[in-house]
Design a protein around this nucleic acid. Structure first.
Lengths: 363, 363
DNA sequence: GCCAATGGTGAATCATCCA
DNA sequence: TTGGATGATTCACCATTGG
């Protein structure tokens, strides 16, 4: 690792001001173990968006996220990825994060430059912002790409640590983590969010535990309010941050001064117990366990037909298995899972049996 | 939709033999509602990155080599995506699916050609193959991209149906579905799997319910063993398949001959309110359901008087139910139908109830 | 002090019809 | 083609307030 030389040459645990490409070019080649990069996404906003209650969505419209066209964005991507690659040690690796607006361009350029993709990882947000106009799917994830400097490199991967983080089974390429809210979300003096796109520390925690060792040097060329630095410090890694905006640097400096490195025992994480996973009734239809047009029969002899979208139709009612059951019984509510049965081998079997099958597969 | 012309010009519900680009170029422009494409990952490309003796290629040659090979794949991608775009109706859409080997190149080229990305969707596999060597994360997902032909197009999205499929909450961009196994997995006579990457029918079910209507034409240029065609047929959509390999076509033909369309009542799906006929507010006054001079009260306690022409007057504003509501609330817009109430038997009832009465009479 | 009700908010390429 | 009017549309979580 060359710890003595490292300290002499590198501005460790500091935030460098200025353009990330210039700043990277001023650092010595082959000096960094890991790069985590959260570049501008190039969101292409069209107009204001309002919630159904008429409040305005505070969207990302900052100057730093605006590019004239794809070609300009690609040029920027090419330049910073190339500067980043020069800084990596031969066995170093990079993470980039993005959304569908930019991630395909990032991934293609990584490949073009000779980076070797190891995994793409999906950050599944447990609490994403909904789609307010009902025109698309809820944008509920972001994509990360993990790549080594080149094919055949001996990158760092702490397989056992991640397996432990995942209750003893292999960590998968989809990570369910909440977005950054509450006390963790940094605020300005006026109470507004300090940065529009602050990432949760849990995400960086997993990235750094997975792909670095204590003492490694982690570079973040789009440092923002310093989540990468904060988690690196907690985990006993060294960091180098680069950030152009003075306001973000100031917030990050303050944040970092308050961060304390964990002692070894502090690395334990408390894990919430998982409830039984929710299984929508529609899943049974999609998976062919029930066919659209098939007739369900209730315990009391009422019938209804299944539709392709997982709703039921009886003579007078349309809706979910629960709604139609309740309507037919004149009851305020009804558990459709136990109320409805389907025919199997001449027998009436509660549809809940099918739900249990799916849950069993998910374990 | 032009069903007569459609049948005359298009080889509906058939599998075309041959190269997909040539086959697509032989079809009439603007004739297809949806394209679902599962293109090859280009194994050629990966093989080329190693020398036959498994030696590592040197850095300079490596970069050139890689560029040349990605370039070949990109050229292929460019050609078929362009042929596909020509076939789409103006309001048509496309789905592509891939893994990190090719999805970034697909996504970037979609954007380059002017397709407009609507969502990227993660197919989260509930039962992926584990990573045996413990060198990476378990590759537990694939990525789909859903894009319209161009920005501003009026693509099909059955929002309410997908919400129903998901137990009443809007569908997210991450879909948990099992891989294709068991009896659904097609086998050759020798018991081997008939196709290496057969997709589950549940995935196509969700795609087609979400973004097509019964009677739409769905094209799959990499038809394989025909999952797209099978689900399209079940759901009452027409399909066109293109497949180069004779063996796959034969399996697909046999499979399709056994598929039955679902009963028509099962194919109906929950519709958006927008599809309901428009009822002008003035109709309520004309019909005597509300009297000129009658006072409406908002949810927030504001009042306004009904006039004979179906406008409202408050202390400071005159206009439609929506305009006066928006003005009184200082909001950019307001749905007057749910905002205003009238007195009935001493209760405040939303005026939307009266609209529903009229709509019921229209059915 | 605890629980319920209310309000705010998060990387967003977020409408359609008719004159 | 453009502009104005209509009117459809949200999930999970956290913080605050009220009882």
């Amino acid at each position: 690792m060359g710890h003595a030389a490292k300290g002499a040459d590198l501005p460790l645990n500091r935030i460098l001001a200025g353009d990330c490409i210039e700043a990277m070019n001023a650092l010595p080649a082959g000096s960094v173990d890991l790069i985590f990069a959260d570049p501008p996404y190039n969101l292409q906003l069209r107009a204001d968006l309002h919630r159904p209650d008429n409040s305005r969505v505070d969207a990302v419209d900052d100057a730093w996220d605006r590019f004239a066209n794809f070609s300009t964005y690609d040029e920027f991507t090419r330049a910073w990825l190339s500067a980043a690659r020069r800084l990596l040690k031969p066995n170093g690796a990079i993470w980039v994060i993005g959304s569908y607006h930019n991630i395909f361009r990032l991934g293609a350029e990584l490949q073009n430059q000779g980076y070797w993709i190891l995994n793409d990882v999906v950050w599944r947000k447990s609490n994403p912002m909904p789609n307010f106009r009902g025109k698309r799917l809820t944008n509920a994830h972001e994509t990360l790409i993990w790549a080594s400097r080149e094919e055949g490199a001996r990158y760092t991967f702490n397989y056992e640590a991640l397996k432990a983080l995942n209750d003893g089974v292999q960590m998968r390429s989809d990570w369910v983590l909440p977005i950054c809210t509450g006390h963790e979300r940094l605020k300005n003096a006026d109470g507004d969010k300090a940065h529009p796109t602050q990432k949760p520390e849990s995400l960086l925690h997993r990235v750094l535990v997975a792909t670095t060792n204590p003492g490694d040097v982690v570079l973040d060329p789009f440092f923002g309010t310093g989540t990468t630095g904060a988690v690196a410090k907690m985990l006993g890694r060294d960091f180098i941050g680069i950030e152009r905006e003075t306001a973000y640097r100031e917030v990050a400096e303050k944040r970092l001064s308050r961060v304390r490195r964990y002692d070894k025992s502090g690395l334990e994480v408390t894990r919430a117990k998982r409830a039984e996973p929710r299984v929508p009734f529609g899943t049974l239809v999609e998976r062919g366990m029930l066919r659209p047009g098939e007739v369900l029969v209730s315990q009391s002899g009422k019938t209804a037909k299944v539709r392709a979208d997982g709703t039921l139709v009886s003579a007078d009612h349309t809706g979910s298995i629960h709604q139609v059951g309740a309507a037919l019984e004149g009851a305020p509510s009804c558990n459709g899972w136990t109320y409805w049965t389907f025919r199997k081998d001449g027998e009436h079997v509660p549809i809940d049996v099918l739900r249990q099958q799916i849950r069993a597969e998910m374990r």
